[in-house]
Nucleic acid binder design. Structure first.
Lengths: 230, 230, 230, 230
DNA sequence: AATGAATGAGCCTTCATTCAT
DNA sequence: GATGAATGAAGGCTCATTCAT
């Protein structure tokens, strides 16, 4: 909260490290990134990371924090939206900004790429990330979905629907390597953000409209019960 | 006796290595896995991997192949289904078996975890994987979805719908670490396979029924065009 | 003396190993050769070398022995020469056959290449080699040179002259890599055996004719005394 | 202080590594040398080589460079020689200094032993070596020999004579192990530098004086044409 | 405040060899 | 008589980290 504000000491090296590290971490992930490459890109000494951030992990979590704030301010989930906008519209905006955060190849999107990795190969930083970034977004989506479902829909059903929406979006973030290999010359390669937003929004709205709540099955002996946690 | 397929010779070490490697690779991924740990778990010498599989990578790709066949034979995508079963039913069976392959915590599911990793951090093995495992399933789903959409629906639209379905499923495979951290005491932790199957099937069928094809938007200045490929 | 004569047992593997090993040792030397490559070339098992020859070194020394006999019978140092041929002619024949043994790229010359290596990087086999192959040739040359020098020339002088001749010859065996890099497009690349024989013979004969014996210097304080042995 | 040329920083480890490596490389060659032994002799960590020289090969090539300069400055090929000294004298000095570089058992002679190895089992460093060390000396010798032969002698003949001289010298560098095994108690073991210089000089001068150029033979069917290049 | 130098653990791989059959 | 399987030692290299300045 106070060391990222370039407090006055010429922490130019520190800033360069954060910048370079964001690039490298986003490109190859935490494990595959090497301190040497980061320092070289930052024009700093090998020992700089340990000096400024104590650890490779310390650097990583700081990068995540900084990039998180950056991304949030860049693709707000309710961009240009009146507070009383209809839920359908709020859903579309939510989906679009989510896709942007997740798909954008721009330099500013390193956060999206890092989060995708965190989800598959969590580090110690994931806890904090869930609390500060993911949870609020989940709540926001729950609220939207809840208001699109019939009043009285049980919260568990609201959640399932929300996850179905999120799943459609994150798919494009996580499975790019597969998509580019499936019929590589086809339309998969170039999908417009707008088209994708339209599709997922329509698909989801149609599903929500037609929703008869998935019954919470009474657990019977035959219905296998599966933990999702690790 | 089942997975030692072609060798015939009683290469007990070879089998033990495949078993141990499947565990380790599924747990920590290709990069983070060490040959030493695998060999130790298999009760074999470090050089055994080189002897039987030439390489760490050779071992990995063989594990992927074996586990792939295992998973496929264990949760076939058309289990107990008449050839002329209605598309709705075929979709449900597809979804359920996919979820099983992906979510099962049983010993047999190491394949699901390895594939999830491949999608995020591809190795050289992904190409083969796409060709042998993923492509056929994609075709199967396309066929089902195609027959649920109005005749004449453009293939690109069929694909988008298919991906929306796959996305919902894979979400639970890729994002478990996040799910277990979001309200860890809630229902997220334990979701029944049956309930999940029901939900995704209903959600998707509703969306498909109500489908008006997503228009391929004319590109305007404002509609940013984003490549999804790497 | 008895195991190399294919004694009757179908030691076909043994022979194949000797053949393959000769190739490999001549190409890359003892250290760089790997048992695996040799066995593969011979179509034999990895354990075959240890079984038949006890050791990598055992194989090597046997190869050297066999190839030695082969080379000797192929390029005899007194080919087609009357016993009473003049010394000049005997020298020319000696030089020519030596060059042949040493320079020939033919398959039969693996011995020459192996000996060149032995001289620079001796193994335990060198002792035997010196005794059986080199010493006799040295004696032969000494005899020739002795009869070309004035009677009464001290043996040490005879030896020095002999070594000067041998040095000229072996130079082309040991320094090929350098020669091919010095003006690689020049005449160095293709030197005829005949031309080389002529040159070295004439050069040496001229030197011998004009020989005033190198005086064995009385050792003074200033003349540094240098051991040549290792 | 002398060989740490360009760094300036007091890289004591770096120097120690170069020193130890020179010893080990000269003793056992590039392939057989182990980084571990070198580092142990230098009192350094295994990773030191990687840090200072990037590679085993990087270390080797640097050692070669440093030792080359050392040898050259220690035994210059024209020591105490007037520019207009007669060719005979220049030849003697050339031969003596060459022998010194090659035979000296002193600590400074590791270069000679390394070069002998390079010639037989070249590494990537040989190209550079030829360009920087060998080529200039070859030119120098050509010049001397050329002025000792009749005007108009074809360059190819000059080269052959030069090689005959070099061969006599290098023989003592390459074949020490053999020499020490041939009549080990005889004079071979201890040959004085002066005596050797005298012998080779006289031998060669006599040959040069009497030179009738080796005719470039017309190729006949019987004269086998052999490439010397690899 | 920052760095060049140095460290030690650990990685994958290769090799000659031996064992059980 | 011969082999496929397995071994253990060692090798080069990379990495995050620490030390002395």
């Amino acid at each position: 909260m106070d060391e990222s504000t370039e407090s006055g000491g010429h922490a130019v090296t520190r800033t360069a490290l954060l910048e370079a590290a964001a690039d490298v971490f986003a490109d190859v992930g935490f494990q595959n990134a090497t301190i040497r490459e980061i320092c070289q890109k930052a024009g700093a000494n090998v020992a700089a990371v340990n000096y400024h951030f104590r650890d490779k992990e310390g650097l990583y979590s700081e990068v995540l924090r900084v990039q998180g704030r950056l991304a949030q301010s860049r693709f707000p989930s309710n961009a240009g939206l009146a507070d009383d906008a209809p839920a359908e519209q709020r859903l579309e905006v939510f989906i679009r900004s989510f896709l942007q955060r997740v798909l954008s190849e721009e330099i500013a999107n390193r956060h999206g790429r890092m989060m995708a990795r965190e989800m598959v190969e969590p580090t110690a930083a994931l806890d904090q990330l869930v609390r500060q970034i993911i949870q609020p977004q989940a709540n926001q989506l729950h609220e939207i979905v809840g208001s699109l479902l019939p009043a009285g829909t049980p919260p568990e059903t609201v959640r399932l629907h929300s996850l179905s929406i999120v799943g459609q979006i994150l798919f494009y973030a996580h499975c790019r390597p597969v998509l580019s290999r499936l019929e590589p010359r086809s339309a998969y390669d170039f999908i417009e953000l707008d088209q994708l937003t339209q599709h997922i929004t329509r698909f989801s709205l149609a599903a929500l409209r037609d929703s008869s709540p998935t019954p919470t099955r009474r657990r019977t002996a035959s219905s296998s019960r599966r933990p999702i946690s690790r």
